[in-house]
Every structure is written in structure tokens, then in C-alpha cells.
Design a protein around this nucleic acid. Structure first.
Lengths: 251, 251
DNA sequence: TAGTGGTCTAGACCACGAC
DNA sequence: TCGTGGTCTAGACCACTAT
């Protein structure tokens, strides 16, 4: 099969304005398979040579596409075994999406207790962040998260009730919600954007976190996006940073 | 020149325990040229084919090394022109090392006014962070940084007096200190690690930043490292986040 | 027009893991 | 022993830049 017969339609000359390298087009078409659920989390995907034959490009081009997806934590490659679709297991989520670490000691996944859950009309911020229509409803829940047996984080999570249909009937909301999103609704979180501010604890925050009213708290506003780059989750975390800090690496 | 004669000594079989891929060894040897100053910021480096001939590996191996260095912001590649050593110019530093952005509006480089400068014995934290010897001295200076005509950041920067010899005699400390480090002492900042906490403004902070005593401030403790991964700068920033936030992308 | 980096291909050999 | 991904090579053509 030569390039003009390829499933991803190569031949850059024919599309002078919207040129994308072949490996990028291949990558897009493979990401599509993740979005559509053709490839499920944890699944072994076909080998490079099989994909090369199927799509009609060389192994090197497939490799560059797979390497790019691996760099984005969408795939996991294991020498001698094959390439697997990444899963939202504890350790990966902990490493990729949780930046609060104890001042001294190991990074650990906090436990959670859900304290409140409602279906409501979204606020303007929520509607904007989640790109919701005029009459949409959201499911909102709050939880207190404990790190090293110390209640340190008060979190409010806001989701589209339509997109997460049935979530209000769940008996239990597990600690690792990204795995829940994946297993129950087939929604994979691919990236997130966080905005941090320092705020004062109000009486509610103070009660929940066991600190003084007016104590400084780290507020983290996170918007999480799915593989198609649509906003999925809005999360406001209020954190005591007496014994924790938010870690950020700049390169 | 064949591989066994190569400057980076290939032949993985001969070093079973400390195996590194050839492209990684090439990368290390090229980073060395940056550390040693053989390649200066802004300089055009030899083409891929020249480097391939010189080192005795193929162009593809050179390419993989250069791509890795480009991903780390050490080099800038421009199609048709060549590969250049990255420079600490405003826009790059702004993008790479400055994560405080106005809540609404464009990201901009803050201006600075230096308010204090001393040579002193380091505190224990400073000595540990900068890996200093028992009798070392540090140069410490404070500055107030203004974003959108609004004094928002109080910063204390701490450097080894020995490493930055003569810095105490500088008439003026410019806004972009990473360019100063580079131009005056040949020190390139390659990466930085930040730890964020929420704290309360003390009377000093409040006066300097024009806020209430006890107001919540975002404290950013940054350790910046040179290309050889040695700690170079310790910086504590206290930020009002009334109109600013710290932006963090998780992927 | 010449030279650069960017893309793509094809094929070789290696290290690793499962059988 | 076999198949996988990992590395390395060699060479082709393209797009961009400067002259």
C-alpha cells in the first residue's frame, strides 16, 4: 500500500493550507480510537508492525505517533510486551494529577469522606467552565480529604448531570473519581489546568478543616478535560498548608 | 570514523552495567559543551550532518539528541536556519519560569524595585538548599515586583557570594536576573522546583505590599538549578493573589 | 540556488518478556 | 525460541531561509 492509498490521506501537496505531518495525522486517528472507546484502558494495542500495515505507513511513522501519545500519558509502552492504553490507577493519578505533598515524607493518596451532594442549577462560573447550555443541571459534591491522618483538604467537585447520568443515585463515591469516570461513563481525563490563590478560611472552612477562621488556605481551582479536550470536571480545593505544600516543577 | 572510534564511546556490549543509549550519551556530551561554555547562548551550533561526522554517529542519532535538548528548552531549532543555543530573553523566561498571571488579561513581565541587599551568613535552610559549605557567605536581596502597575510580589533572592563574585558591587540589579547570571557569570538556569503554601501577611509584608496584616498571601519557595543540576538560587516570593493567580498545567 | 532542519521510509540488530 | 518495543543507520524528499 503506498501513501496515496493510506487511510489517513497523506500527500501534503494537496492540502497546502492545513498541512499536518503524517505522524501527527496518524496520532490523531489513534487518539480517536481512545475517544470512541475502540481501545479500552488497560488493553494491549496492536504492535507497531501491525499498525503500520493496517494504516499503510512505515513502522517509524507509527513509532513517532505512539511516542507522542506515550509522552502525553495516553499509552504505556513495555519493552518485550507491547503497548497498552493507560489506566487511571492510583499511582499514575497520584503522580500526574496530585501535587500536594507532605513537607516531610512520602507522597501519598489522600482518603476522602463525602459530606454533601446535590443536583442544582450551575453558577455562572460553573456554566462557563464546563461549557454548559442555559438549562443544564450539575451534580455537585463536597468531600474532606485526609493526608497522613490529618484533614487537610476541603473539595467541591462539579460535573454535568447530563454527562454523568445516574451519578446522583450512586450509593458511594470512591476516592479515585477519575477511575470512576472512566469505568462508569467511559470518560478519560487527559489533562487539567489549575489556578492557585491564597484565601482566608471562612467559618465553614474553619469548622471543616479544624483551623482558625481567617487562617490562610491554598485554593486550587481545577478544570479537567477529556481526550477530546472538552471540559469535564470543575473542582475547587481548599487546602491547609501547615504540613503540606503544592509542588511544581519548571523546565 | 566508525563507532568504536567515536568520541562518546559507543559499543553498548562493553558496558553491560552502565548502559545508556547512544543518543543519550551524545546528548550528555553536547550538554557538556553548554556547561563548559564552549557553546554560548544565542550561538548557531554546527548542523546535524557536521555533528554526525564529528562525533561519528548517524544524523538520526544526532537528531534524537538535539530533539531531547530542544524539549528541555536548551536549544531552539529553526527550519532553514539552523539550531541555536537558547537565550534567557524576556519572553522565554516569562513563559518558562513565571507562572503568576493576571486573573483577566495578558501575561506580562513584572517590573522590580530592589529594596534591600546584604552579604550575610546563610540560614540553615539556605545553606541546605544551596548546598553550601560551613563557612560560606550568601548575597541576599529583596525586591518588590509590580504587575499591571500594582505591587503584588515581595521577593527575597539568595545566592552564593562565592559563586556570584562581585555581585555585591553591582550598581544595579536588572529585572531579568537569569540573563544577568548568564551574561556576567556564565551560569544558565536549566530548571527550577517550586513549593507553594498559603501564609498570613506579617506587618512587614503588609506594609510592603499594601495589604492588611494577616491577609492571605501565596508563598512560593523556588530553588533554581544550573545545567549541571547544581542549586544556584533560592527565592522566596510572597504574592497577593487578589488579582493574580498561579497557573499550573497538568498533563 | 544552496544549505538547513523536518518528515518519511526501510531495514538491521539489540534487550526484554513470555512461552 | 519468538515477538515485542528500543536503538541505530542510511538515504530520500520536502519546506523554509538566506543570498
Amino acid at each position: 500500500m503506498n501513501r496515496s492509498e493510506a487511510a489517513v490521506s497523506a500527500e501534503p501537496r494537496e492540502e497546502a493550507f492545513s498541512y499536518r505531518p503524517l505522524y501527527a495525522q496518524v496520532k490523531d486517528s489513534l487518539v480517536r480510537r481512545l475517544i470512541d472507546g475502540a481501545w479500552q484502558p488497560g488493553q494491549l494495542i496492536p504492535s507497531e508492525l501491525e499498525l503500520a500495515r493496517e494504516i499503510g505507513v512505515s513502522q517509524g511513522t507509527i513509532r513517532k505517533a505512539l511516542d507522542a501519545m506515550t509522552a502525553e500519558n495516553l499509552l504505556v509502552r513495555r519493552q518485550g510486551r507491547g503497548t497498552f492504553v493507560a489506566q487511571p490507577e492510583e499511582s499514575r493519578i497520584l503522580f500526574q494529577f496530585f501535587r500536594l505533598v507532605p513537607d516531610s515524607g512520602e507522597r501519598s493518596f489522600p482518603t476522602s469522606v463525602v459530606v454533601d451532594r446535590t443536583v442544582a442549577k450551575p453558577g455562572v462560573d460553573e456554566r462557563a467552565a464546563l461549557d454548559l447550555s442555559e438549562d443544564a443541571r450539575v451534580f455537585r459534591f463536597r468531600r474532606i480529604r485526609t493526608v497522613d491522618e490529618w484533614p487537610a483538604i476541603a473539595e467541591t467537585i462539579c460535573l454535568s448531570a447530563a454527562r454523568f447520568r445516574g451519578i446522583e443515585d450512586l450509593a458511594d463515591i470512591p476516592n479515585n473519581v477519575y477511575r470512576l469516570y472512566s469505568e462508569r461513563w467511559g470518560i478519560t481525563i487527559g489533562r487539567a489546568s489549575e489556578k492557585l490563590k491564597a484565601v482566608s478560611a471562612d467559618t465553614d472552612d474553619a469548622r471543616r478543616l479544624g483551623c482558625e477562621q481567617g487562617a490562610p488556605l491554598l485554593q486550587i481551582a481545577r478544570t479537567a478535560y477529556d481526550l477530546a479536550n472538552r471540559p469535564v470536571e470543575l473542582r475547587i480545593s481548599l487546602c491547609r498548608t501547615d504540613r503540606l505544600h503544592y509542588s511544581s516543577e519548571l523546565r
